[in-house]
């Protein structure tokens, strides 16, 4: 079975965000694989190690430098990559269209993705891809089992969690608790350099949405810092909770 993993290259989660000419500046930003996608890559590699997957293909849409994210995934143990050259400003609709086209061509039995991108965090792309392909999708998966042409996952749900089973081919979006991604080994990094990465141009699809303004949130002014005996601190906080925040106390 062929497994395809979607990886988005994102800013390091520690990155400080600055605006330049009204846009988010990527100057000096350390780029990483979206943390959820790293979990998806790890899961794909584990499926191969278990003998369930025969090949793990990593696909990323974005600027040329997104190839670094693909190389990292290859160093972890994925087999080959496809870079879909696309304007990073493409919206979820255009990205889903471009990625779904590559997925159709690659014809995997399973697509693994993150459940949200840590940058623009829209939680749309895998769901849209599943709709385009007419496949089932399990979202926010915390476990994954593949057997008898089916995928079964525990996943987060509103008001609890649930166990869902779907027939393959399917899209599964991961939560970080699914696994602990490995670090690429030195040998893995050397091997990754020789693994094939194809580059394709994205299908020309117009975005349906447009970002008209970026801004930085007003910095929350730090309030009062209080020190002293626990009893004094307690008085200060209690006064704030009752009189400022006006929270009702259940005695």
């Amino acid at each position: 079975m062929k497994v395809l993993v979607l990886v988005k290259q994102t800013f390091d989660t520690e990155a400080k965000i600055e605006l330049k000419d009204g846009k988010i500046s990527d100057a000096g930003i350390n780029m990483i694989i979206n943390p959820y996608d790293e979990v998806a890559v790890e899961e794909g590699i584990r499926l191969k190690e278990k003998g369930i997957a025969t090949e793990v293909v990593v696909v990323s849409a974005g600027a040329d430098k997104a190839i670094e994210a693909i190389r990292t995934a290859l160093a972890m143990g994925a087999d080959r990559g496809v870079l879909v050259q696309q304007d990073v400003a493409a919206d979820e609709f255009a990205r889903a269209k471009a990625l779904a086209k590559v997925i159709s061509e690659q014809a995997p039995s399973l697509v693994l993705a993150g459940h949200v991108a840590a940058d623009d965090g829209s939680s749309q792309v895998p769901t849209r891809i599943a709709e385009i392909l007419g496949w089932p999708h399990i979202n926010v998966a915390t476990t994954l089992e593949i057997a008898d042409g089916k995928a079964t996952c525990n996943c987060e749900a509103d008001g609890g969690s649930q166990v869902i089973e779907v027939a393959l081919p399917a899209v599964i979006s991961t939560q970080v608790s699914l696994n602990e991604p490995r670090y690429p080994s030195m040998k893995g990094i050397m091997q990754a350099k020789k693994k094939p990465v194809d580059t394709v141009a994205a299908e020309a699809v117009e975005s349906k949405t447009k970002i008209v303004e970026f801004s930085l949130p007003a910095a929350k002014a730090a309030g009062k810092k209080v020190t002293g005996e626990p009893a004094d601190l307690a008085k200060e906080i209690a006064n704030f909770i009752k009189n400022e925040a006006k929270i009702e106390i259940k005695k």
Binding site: I17, D120, I211, V212, E213, F214, S215, L216, P217
Partner: peptide, 8 residues
Amino acid sequence: YAGKALAK
């Protein structure tokens, strides 16, 4: 960006 920026 996890609340570090806003987009309209």
